[in-house]
Amino acid sequence: MELSVFNISGKETGKKVTLNDAIYGIEPNDHVIWLDVKQYMANQRQGTHKSKERSEMSGSTRKLIRQKGSGGARRGDINSPVLVGGARVFGPRPRNYSFKLNKKVKALARKSALAYKAKENQIMVVEDLSFDAPKTKDFVAMANSLQVADKKLLLVLPDQNKNVYLSARNLQRVKVITASELNTYSILDCTCLLLAESSVAAIDNLFKA
């Protein structure tokens, strides 16, 4: 699959980039995509939720009513879960939600996500860009020139570029990452995948490793 390379003014440079069919041309695997996105979302969870259980609450331990004969539920003390303001049964406890996925599964998931973007013609290639200073208006002008300002944009750079990152940081529908940070969730979450020219080779190398 060949794509034209655009400059930041939105004009074609005459150069072409060939996307690797072993990455962008595979048959997507929906199950591994689900697994990888599930792991990504699980890793975002802090897992600090906590509610007090019966033994952790303060209150009298006096037995309120006799065990049998009242016609109602038995209750041992004021902390009983059957009472308003009582303890919670099997409440949440702090825990770690992360789980392991094999490297080959995660690689296949990223390839599948890239293949979906290629099928839907949601990939653009732009010349390697660098701003002299962090300026959001320069990034907005580039997005307007490329006619992607109305889309949810994921810009993939070959390496860290502080000025580009800071220029896009305040834009709600724009995310800037490096090729090494590429993940399935971010790829699927955008409606336009904007690749810097050198990022195409960087992504190829990423899957060769």
Results as ranks from 00 to 15, higher is better:
Ala141Ser: 14
Leu35Val: 00
Ala42Thr: 00
Gln67Glu: 11
Asn96Asp: 15
Gly69Gln: 01
Ile177Glu: 10
Ile33Leu: 08
Ala179Tyr: 06
Asp132Trp: 01
Gly69Ala: 03
Gln160Glu: 08
Cys192Ala: 13
Thr18Arg: 12
Asn96Phe: 06
Val37Leu: 04
Ser186Asp: 15
Pro81Gln: 06
Val174Lys: 04
Lys175Pro: 02
Lys103Pro: 00
Phe99Ala: 00
Gly59Trp: 08
Ser55Glu: 11
Lys103Tyr: 00
Ser4Arg: 09
Arg93Cys: 01
Arg95Thr: 11
Pro92Met: 03
Asn102Pro: 01
Trp34Thr: 11
Gln122Glu: 15
Tyr24Phe: 15
Ile123Ser: 09
Thr184Phe: 12
Ala87Cys: 06
Ser186Leu: 13
Arg66Met: 03
Arg93Lys: 14
Glu197Thr: 08
Gly91Cys: 03
Glu120Phe: 10
Ile26Asp: 02
Gly86Trp: 12
Glu27Phe: 01
Met41Trp: 00
Gln46Gly: 14
Gln44Pro: 00
Lys135Gln: 13
Gly71His: 12
Arg66Phe: 04
Ser167Lys: 02
Lys208Ile: 05
Gly85Cys: 06
Cys190Trp: 10
Gly71Leu: 10
Ala118Arg: 12
Gly10Arg: 08
Gly25Asn: 06
Phe90Asn: 12
Ala113Pro: 06
Thr184Met: 11
Ser51Cys: 08
Asp138Phe: 07
Asn7Gly: 05
Ser55Val: 08
Gly85Gln: 04
Leu155Asn: 12
Phe139Gln: 02
Lys103Glu: 07
Ala141Met: 02
Val174Glu: 04
Ser4Ala: 10
Asp36Asn: 14
His31Glu: 12
Leu193His: 06
Gln147Tyr: 07
Pro94Ile: 00
Lys52Cys: 02
Pro81Gly: 10
Ser112Trp: 07
Ala201Cys: 01
Met57Leu: 15
Phe90Gln: 07
Val156Ala: 09
Asn205Lys: 13
Met57Ala: 05
Asn43Asp: 10
Gln39Gly: 05
Val156Asp: 09
Ala209Pro: 04
Ala149Leu: 10
Ile23Trp: 08
Val32Gln: 00
Val5Ala: 00
Ala109Cys: 02
Ala73His: 04
Ser80Glu: 07
Gly76Ile: 11
Asn102Phe: 03
Asn183Trp: 09
Gly76Trp: 13
Arg66Tyr: 11
Ala179His: 07
Ser198Thr: 11
Thr178Gly: 05
Ala22Lys: 15
Lys104Trp: 06
Met124Ala: 05
Ala149Pro: 02
Lys111Tyr: 02
Ala143Tyr: 07
Phe99Ser: 01
Phe131His: 09
Leu193Glu: 09
Ala73Gln: 05
Ile8Glu: 03
Glu12Gly: 14
Asn163Glu: 14
Ser186Thr: 12
Ser199Phe: 06
Asp77Leu: 11
Asn29Gln: 06
Val17Ala: 13
Leu146Val: 07
Val164Ile: 15
Asp77Gln: 10
Ala107Trp: 04
Arg62Glu: 09
Arg54Thr: 02
Ser145Phe: 02
Ala196Pro: 00
Ser55Phe: 07
Ser70Asn: 14
Gln67Ile: 13
Ser198Asn: 12
Phe99Glu: 01
Asn163Met: 06
Phe6His: 06
Asn161Lys: 13
Lys137Trp: 01
Val164Lys: 05
Leu182Phe: 02
Gly10Gln: 09
Gln67Phe: 04
